[in-house]
């Protein structure tokens, strides 16, 4: 593989890992604070799955750059603008409706993405995707069940779900707008062709929202930037928490 493609592969692995990592961190914040015991356990288990997947991507990324950087360096020691997660996953845990809607918007995408990556030309990406997709199937099922239950629930739960949908919907399209790296990787047959997934994504999502008696926001202006390092103000707070130990005690290990 040429150096330039190696660089792009490294960048791509970070793109794949960062979404799961920042969402995993958001879910981790709920540990001990979930609305009920079982949901608390479910959300933190989903977080654990996501972090496990991140480790697989970052271990591989460290192998690809082979310059002494470790998975921990890649995870912990970048600056804010070097994180490539989408704006959706950094949105706060405003209430349980937001947590579920954010999760479900991501899970639909994540499942579709992995079902493309299992056919990647990169063997290691295939192995990670095949492992991850089994886990993400559960995530999607879990969040979809809650979307239906709360959307088609009481007046209050429906209203809260609708508020969350209205607020978070504008972050969905960024997932399908490829960065230069994503385009290059798709052309090489290594990455997923994101624009080709978009139609199916919205079809599935809208069908679920309809089933949950929720309305699809109309005439929405979409927000972009996270994947290119332009994050909302939430990201700084997430990283302050996330990076604290490594910043305070450099090279510490468990």
């Amino acid at each position: 593989m040429s150096d330039i493609n190696k660089e792009a592969l490294y960048d791509y692995l970070l793109l794949l890992g960062d979404n799961s990592m920042i969402l995993g961190q958001r879910l981790g914040e709920l540990c001990g604070h979930g609305p009920e015991l079982e949901t608390d356990i479910a959300l933190t288990n989903i977080s654990l799955d996501l972090f496990g997947q991140v480790r697989n991507y970052f271990q591989y990324a460290a192998e690809v750059v082979a310059d002494g950087r470790t998975e921990d360096d890649i995870a912990m020691l970048r600056k804010e603008h070097e994180y490539k997660s989408s704006l959706l996953v950094e949105q706060p845990n405003t209430d349980f409706a937001y947590v579920i809607v954010r999760q479900n918007f991501f899970d639909h995408y994540h499942y579709m993405l992995l079902s493309k990556l299992v056919d990647s030309k990169d063997e290691q990406i295939v192995a990670v995707a095949k492992k991850s997709i089994k886990e993400v199937e559960y995530h999607l099922d879990f969040s979809s069940t809650w979307v239906k239950r709360l959307g088609d629930g009481t007046e209050e739960s429906r209203q809260r779900m609708q508020d969350a949908v209205n607020e978070l919907y504008r972050f969905t399209r960024e997932l399908f707008k490829p960065t230069e790296t994503e385009e290059r990787m798709a052309n090489l047959g290594i990455g997923a062709d994101l624009p080709s997934m978009e139609e199916d994504y919205y079809k599935q999502l809208h069908a679920l929202l309809e089933e949950a008696t929720l309305e699809v926001p109309q005439g929405e202006v979409f927000q972009y930037g996270g994947k290119e390092g332009r994050h909302s103000e939430y990201m700084g707070y997430i990283l302050t928490d996330f990076q604290f130990m490594q910043r305070a005690y450099p090279n510490m290990k468990w």
Partner: peptide, 13 residues
Amino acid sequence: MVSRFGSTACKAL
């Protein structure tokens, strides 16, 4: 079933 997730990710309660 009480919960799809039990004491660990691989189990349900």
